[in-house]
């Protein structure tokens, strides 16, 4: 089942998209863990230059697996892309290491933040530039550039990352990735476990980075509402398949999306239980 919700697309955007190849193209990939567990069953998606694309879906849908396939971090978790291909800037990534991709400008910010707890906030940021050979002065400059986006981190620069708040850790993780000077970020659930105002603060910064640094973003989120507010385009993943995709605005207005992912329907808010049984029925029929 694949409901297409691409309504009257803006002409000029379509023409432009055709002229410029996507930064990232995932073509029909299948991913298997431990040689037996099939998790992705033919996922395709594209991220155009300079856009924010959201990858939405519930627990275990395969969002993180998709991001790790792209960054090739999957290999260290005994996962493998067994079919399809992934191209970053027109180059296939399957033979590359995460480090090589970082060098090419593709950095993943992993789910759960993964700060270096025993390093200070600033040391965390500095490690982001590890693979670049830059001098002290330039390093200082880059740090200031990051602090301009994350003023909170400047205040907390000498605290151990392990002792900073969840929101600050998320900022450290994103800031650290930006220190690699990427042209594309893969963000895995930046909203996870954070209060709504902090989520909003972080997403505002992400949008800022997207607009001012021109970094393209693929964003995996369970928080459909927030993600669609900041994204240009969205894909909805369920059980390892893309069920739906379209411009973020159209998705946010879509009846099924409202019902299943935004917890609303024409009769107003539905209870979680109704939703679940309905989903179950729908899947098994």
């Amino acid at each position: 089942m694949n409901v297409s919700v691409a309504p009257a697309v803006d002409r000029s955007a379509a023409v432009q998209a055709a002229a410029q190849p996507p930064v990232l193209a995932v073509k029909n990939i299948e991913v298997i863990y431990n040689h037996v567990i099939l998790v992705l069953r033919g996922v395709s998606l594209e991220v155009p230059q300079g856009k924010i694309v959201a990858l939405l879906g519930g627990n275990g849908a395969g969002k993180s697996t998709t991001l790790k396939s792209i960054s090739t971090l999957l290999a260290s978790e005994r996962g493998a892309v067994t079919k399809g291909s992934i191209e970053f800037r027109g180059q296939r990534t399957d033979q590359l290491t995460p480090g090589e991709l970082v060098g090419m400008g593709l950095v993943q910010v992993m789910e759960g933040r993964h700060c270096f707890g025993h390093l200070t906030a600033e040391e965390n940021l500095i490690t982001g530039a590890y693979a670049r050979s830059i001098g002290r002065a330039q390093l200082r400059e880059e740090l200031d550039r990051i602090y301009a986006y994350f003023p909170r981190l400047k205040v907390r620069r000498s605290s151990l990352a392990g002792y900073t708040s969840g929101g600050e850790q998320q900022m450290i993780a994103i800031g650290r990735a930006m220190m690699a000077k990427p042209s594309m970020l893969l963000l895995d659930e930046p909203s996870m476990g954070l209060a709504p105002q902090i989520v909003a603060e972080i997403f505002e910064i992400v949008r800022d980075l997207n607009q001012k640094e021109g970094v393209s973003i693929l964003l995996a989120e369970q928080n459909t509402n927030v993600a669609l507010k900041y994204a240009d385009y969205g894909y909805i993943l369920e059980s390892g398949r893309i069920m739906l995709d379209g411009p973020a605005k159209a998705l946010a207005e879509n009846k099924d999306v409202k019902e299943f992912y935004l917890g609303m329907s024409s009769e107003g808010r539905k209870s979680f239980r109704d939703m679940k049984s309905y989903r179950r029925r729908k899947r098994w029929v």
Binding site: L73, G99, V107, H114, F116, L119, T127
Partner: peptide
């Protein structure tokens, strides 16, 4: 040294930002 401490703290994260 900083790289080493980073790797000791979190392998996966170190890998993700390109520490060899």
């Amino acid at each position: 040294g900083r790289g080493l401490r980073a790797v000791a703290d979190d392998h996966a994260a170190a890998l993700s930002i390109g520490i060899p």
